[in-house]
Every structure is written in structure tokens, then in C-alpha cells.
Computed example of a mutant assay.
Amino acid sequence: MKRLHIVQVISNFPDAQKLPPTNQGGTEKIVHELTESLVQRGHQVTIFATQGSRTSAKLVPFPMGLRDQGIASYVLRNMPPDVDVIHDHTFTSALGIRKLSIPTVCTMHLPVKQRVKHPVYVSKRAKTVMGNNRGDFVYNGINPSEYEFSTRKSNIMVFMGRILREKGVLHAIEIAEKTNRKLIIAGPIKDQALFRKEIMPRIQNNPNIKFVGPVGGKRKQKLLKYAACLLFPTVWEEPFGLVMIEAMVCGTPVLALNRGAVPEVMAGFPELICRSVPEMIAKVKQGRYPDPAALRSYVIRRFATSLMTSRYLAIYQKAMKK
């Protein structure tokens, strides 16, 4: 394959993370992984991202205070010469909705409907629901060598994600209450009222439940690799669910509700997919989980960064031909 010049563009919302993200930021993590992998394969990559980002590509930092609607204008004003393809990761497809002469591939990291020429979804389910089966899908990928593996597990369950009702945090608390097991809740509070009125009182009444806020780096690794299981009781149309593969690559089982892309991500372990919270409670009580090594090898085979990169390169070529 000839060496391409690829421009990657990520959203610059007020809470956008630097690359690579430290405590949260699933989209930022995926964009960073993809960018580094493309550079390693010899492609020329220019990335528009938050100031202070670290990358092997050529970084063009967004000015402070730039909102999503200003991204397209800023990128077009600062576009390098001889670009083969633009990869738009912004949540509003800021560049994709413009009819540009440069082929523009848009990844829909959130379940939003955008009419763009080359849409890419992060699961087959998202493509069906949000894209009416139009476009492509590419599973998110992670670099397995960045994740520590352990066969030794504690008796502590973990919930890791944004503290929002649709992420199922209240279900995770219910599971801990009904099983009398220990639970650590990790993630940024995105709904203050929910946390204050419904979550905090139940944590204060239960010494088995602990909230630790957003985690990253070694702290995140430690939580994931020693957890008895990760609870993923999502109640919305989950487009992918990155933390599921992060847990499994550490050798930790995931108990997940059958929503959105969960059946695809967990396809290798259907016995861990639950139809209801009572079923999750029963499975926690049983405590029968797959071998940690089998969980890790499944992620390596199906969700490695290298696979994601190869899929995107094929989509870039297709967009350029069109």
C-alpha cells in the first residue's frame, strides 16, 4: 500500500481530553491508538487535537475555547497540502457534513444519526440502528501489551464508567446490595443530581460499596486486573463499550446486560450476557467464570489495534476510489 497522508480530527468540547487520555476519554484513547498505529506503518499523519497532546504524528493543537462548530473552519484554514483522506472523529461530524473535495471518513463514536458520505460505526448494531445499515463498521481496538494480566482475583466487583443513569450504575449498586459483595464504582460524575440524591445515600448506608472517582494509568489497571468481575449493566443503546474489552484483556470476566453492542463484544462468552438484573445477581452468586487466559486471547484475536487499523486503511482506500 502506498504511503498515505491522513488527517485525523477529534472533537474539542470543553471537556475534551489530551491525547493519550489519563483518566477517561474512550474516543480519545481510540483516536490515539489509531494514530500511533498508522504512523508505525509508515503513513504521514497530521492530527488536530487538544493542546498538550502527545503523539508521534504532526500535532496541530486547537486554540483554547474553540467549540465544535468552529472546528471545521479551523481545520480547513490549517489543512496541510497533499492530504489523501480526512478522518473525522468529531461528535457532530463537523467536516463530514461539508461537501469537501478531500475524501472524508466519519466515525460515529456516539449513537447519533448524521448524513455523511462515508460513515463508520463502532459496531454492527450501531450501523443497523443509527445508520440504517448504510456505511461500514469497525470495532474499537486496544493494544494488549499496554494491559497487565492476572489470574489472581480479589472478591471485589468493579463498575467503571461515566456516572449516568443509562450506564446502569444503580443496577450495579443493586447487585452489590442483593449479593452482599464488595463493589468499587469508578468514573467521572456526569449527573450530579443522580449522584447526590440516589447514589451517595446508598453508598453511605453500605460499607461494601466505595466510590473512587475517575481512574487511569496504573490505578485503573490494578482495579481491572484484580476484580472478581466487571459489572456492565448498561441500559441504553451502547455503541461499543470499551471497558468490556479492557477488563477481558486483563483476564477479568464481564457480566453485561444484553443492550446495544454487548452481544457482539461478548460474542465469545455468551454465558456472561444477561437478560435482566436478577440474572446478573444469580451469576454473581454462582461465581462461575471463564479462564482468564481465554478472556485475554479472545480480545487479542478480535479487538487488537492492528485489526482496527487495517480495517480503517481499507475504508480510506475505498473512500479515495469513490
Rank of each mutant, 00 (worst) to 15 (best):
M1H: 07
L4H: 05
I6H: 04
I6W: 03
Q8L: 11
I10Y: 08
K18P: 04
V31S: 08
H32W: 15
T35A: 06
T35E: 00
L38R: 00
H43F: 09
H43P: 12
T46I: 11
I47E: 11
F48Q: 05
A49N: 09
T50W: 01
R54M: 15
A57T: 04
L59M: 02
L66E: 02
R67S: 04
Y74A: 08
N78H: 15
P80F: 07
D84Q: 05
H87R: 02
D88T: 04
T92L: 13
A94Y: 03
L95V: 09
I97A: 10
T104D: 12
C106A: 14
T107M: 09
M108Y: 15
R115M: 08
H118W: 15
P119A: 08
V120I: 13
T128H: 10
M130I: 06
N133V: 03
F137T: 07
F137P: 06
V138G: 03
Y139Q: 05
P144I: 11
K167I: 01
V169F: 08
H171W: 02
A172D: 02
I173A: 01
E174L: 08
K178F: 00
T179W: 00
K182E: 15
I184W: 00
A186Y: 02
K190N: 12
Q192C: 05
L194K: 13
L194P: 11
F195V: 05
P201K: 10
I203P: 07
N205M: 13
N206V: 10
P207A: 13
I209D: 10
K210H: 11
G213D: 04
G216T: 10
R219N: 13
K222S: 14
L223S: 06
K225D: 01
A227N: 08
A227S: 14
F232A: 11
P233I: 00
V235I: 15
P239H: 05
G241F: 07
M244W: 07
A247R: 08
M248P: 04
C250D: 03
T252S: 13
G260N: 04
A261P: 11
P263D: 06
G268S: 06
R275S: 13
V277L: 00
E279I: 00
I281P: 00
V284G: 01
Q286D: 09
G287W: 02
G287P: 06
G287C: 05
G287M: 06
R288I: 15
P292F: 09
A293Q: 14
A294L: 14
I300F: 04
R302F: 09
A304N: 13
A304P: 04
M308K: 12
T309Y: 14
T309I: 10
S310N: 14
A314F: 01
Q317R: 10
K318P: 07
K322V: 02
